[in-house]
Nucleic acid binder design. Structure first.
Length: 580
RNA sequence: UGGGGCGUCGUCAAGCGGUAAGACACAGGAUUUUGAUUCCUGCAUUCGGAGGUUCGAAUCCUCCCGCCCCAGCCA
């Protein structure tokens, strides 16, 4: 972990936000302090896009020896729920960030916010308006035409004070009145056309319960909350650029503790997936996926269940950089970061996804000739042998384990071809291959069922090649992964692939679900995995040699019924070649 | 057609007036008991376009083109 942090530290790229902060520090702004915040609304699950913001905000704070607050922007009880608060906390924690002792909530500031509103009213900078929603829209004007002032705009300060207090006291129904900032109905920036800052919602709040029936709007709440927390740099996404004048206006009009600087950056988009809360919700609600933590979803909960590591995610967020350009990042980049990390940490193990039975016809003879071998164990029916396998060929410190060789083995169906081209380095009639950490075997006969499907291979092995080395220096083109019937246990394996077939699922269609990949999940039953995996912990990464990285599913896997998720495949040059 | 942004390799992305970093992808080659990993090598005479300023421009100026965002009592 220490090493990881050092490595991450060194790898951190510069970006325009850090440049701004650096200049600020140079100038002595905020006495050199850096305080950021990650401000999710608890109305859904976090996704990879949020991870970028989390890594940015917490990363910048760490780097400049400042701090980052985790703050819930919980100002709309109609959409928010405690379960989202819980899941967000757990996701941020999983990503590996520390928000200190305290979790912040905008709702903790409701009283302060109310006072700020009073202050605005007293300065004649806010008024209570009775326009209906429809009227408000009409008065607002359009993108090209200025708006009209509300008839209530010149209500007296005393009357505004009275009405606002009565709004708070619950004397009016939802929608009867709103509190608006008095700015400029002719502003070319629509956000400045007397924006609503408080609305009546007679609704219980997850945290303040029934204490309030008026709730502040985002624009009013956000900047003021930032100020109350002493935030120095308020980082948000591009769509809030138009709100910055309002953010600044509010902070200037009110006696705020400080005036944080809002800086906007582009949100992250990934190809072959969707990222918005609304679309993710549709996928979940219409059962296109199995819940918010479906391993195919770009939610934090999903990628975690899929087997992604926080280190890989953090590294990815660092590598893609931060800019104001809207982009769509290639998932290949994410997968590369994942493989990079998993290659380092995942113990290697063997598993056969689509087993093809292999019988070693000369194995029995071994029983007599080699019975003095101390690695040999005689069982009732079959003769088995224990061999050593490395847990990580590049990292001897990760140790070795015992694997079992016997007369009945399984190899991957894809590793045998009856009429193999010369470039096929695997098993074919008459050809010899190495079984990893086992023996060289040669295919002698092919057994088929009545439909012509290959159901079993009869092979011979070379006793001299124990462990996979040939004393005579004989070379073999291929090394196959395998498992023996005695040394393996059954398992179910979920092969996940990209959720959508189109790079941009929304392009050229009114319904992005039409681009769903029907093969985004292929569930394989009857797989065989090394016994070693029988008590694999959920989410712990293993490399199934030659296949990819897998982890036991945190929801479904049990000792009685193993279920593994494919996190990501290995790079596969052969797949590319063979397709041509 | 109001306002706010953005345009540098297939995809991200540095660059901030001194002559185009890096990563991924891609293409070759080496090593390999994972067709994995690792390791070399190659990969923008050019920065949306056109003018201009300058000894010198991706960087400064002008005009043009393209893309994104904004008319919730959502955030």
């Amino acid at each position: 972990m220490e090493d990881d942090n050092i490595k991450e530290e060194n790898n951190r790229k510069n970006n325009f936000i850090k440049s701004i902060i650096n200049e600020d520090i140079q100038k002595g702004k905020n006495s050199g302090k850096v305080i950021t915040r990650f401000p999710p609304e608890p109305n859904g699950f976090l996704h990879i896009g949020h991870a970028k913001s989390i890594c940015l905000n917490f990363g910048v704070a760490q780097e400049f020896k400042g701090k980052c607050n985790l703050r819930f922007d919980d100002t709309n009880p109609a959409k928010e729920d405690q379960k989202y608060i819980d899941s967000i906390i757990s996701d941020v924690k999983w990503l590996g960030f520390d928000w200190g002792e305290k979790i912040y909530y905008a709702s903790d500031y409701f009283e302060n916010l109310y006072d700020f509103a009073l202050e605005l009213i007293k300065k004649d900078k806010a008024y209570v308006c009775s326009l209906t929603g429809e009227e408000m829209r009409q008065y607002r004007g359009t993108l090209t035409e200025p708006g009209k002032e509300s008839p209530d705009r010149n209500r007296s300060i005393d009357e505004n004070l009275d009405l606002f207090e009565r709004m708070r006291n619950g004397e009016f129904t939802d929608g009867a009145y709103v509190l608006r900032a008095k700015i400029d109905m002719a502003s070319p920036n629509i956000n400045m056309r007397d924006p609503v800052i408080y609305r009546i919602k007679k609704m219980s709040h997850p945290r303040t319960k029934d204490k309030w029936c008026i709730y502040p709007m985002y624009d009013f709440t956000h900047g003021l909350s930032d100020s109350l927390e002493g935030i120095t740099h308020s980082l948000c996404t591009l769509e809030f650029q138009d709100h910055r004048p309002l953010y600044d206006w509010l902070l200037d009009e009110v006696t705020a503790p400080c005036h944080p600087q809002q800086i906007e950056f582009a949100r992250m988009n990934l190809n072959y997936t969707v990222m918005s809360k609304r679309k993710l919700q549709k996928l979940v609600e219409n059962n296109h996926v199995d819940g918010w933590d479906d391993p195919r979803l770009p939610t934090i909960a999903g990628i975690r269940r899929r087997g992604y590591t926080p280190e890989a995610m953090r590294n990815f967020c660092n590598i893609i950089g931060v800019s104001k350009k809207e982009s769509r990042i290639d998932v290949g980049m994410l997968e590369n970061c994942l493989r990079d990390d998993l290659n380092e940490r995942a113990p290697r193990v063997m598993a056969v996804l689509k087993p093809l039975k292999v019988t070693i016809e000369n194995w029995q003879e071994q029983e007599n000739s080699n019975s003095s071998d101390k690695n040999s164990v005689k069982e009732e029916k079959s003769f088995i042998e224990e061999l050593d396998a490395q847990n990580h060929p590049q990292k001897p410190e990760m140790g070795t384990r015992k694997i079992i060789f016997s007369k009945t083995l399984f190899i991957e169906q894809d590793d045998f071809m009856e009429n193999a081209p010369k470039k096929f380095f695997r098993l074919a009639p008459g050809r010899e291959v190495r079984l990893r950490y086992g023996y060289f075997i040669t295919c002698k006969h092919v057994i088929k069922d009545k439909d012509g499907n290959v159901v079993e291979l009869i092979c011979t092995y070379d006793p001299a090649t124990r462990g996979g080395d040939s004393p005579d220096g004989r070379k073999v083109k291929g090394t196959l992964h395998w498992v023996s019937s005695e040394g393996s246990v059954p398992a179910t394996v979920n092969l996940y692939d990209r959720l959508f077939m189109a790079e941009d699922p929304e392009a050229e269609t009114d319904d992005f679900t039409k681009n769903l990949n029907p093969e985004s999940l292929v569930r394989l039953e009857g797989c065989r995995v090394e016994k070693y995996l029988a008590d694999a912990a959920p989410e712990k990464a293993y490399q199934f040699e030659r296949l990819g990285y897998f982890c036991a599913d945190s929801r479904e896997s049990s000792k009685e019924h193993l279920v593994f998720n494919r996190t990501v495949t290995l790079r596969d040059t052969w797949a590319k070649v063979s397709q041509q």
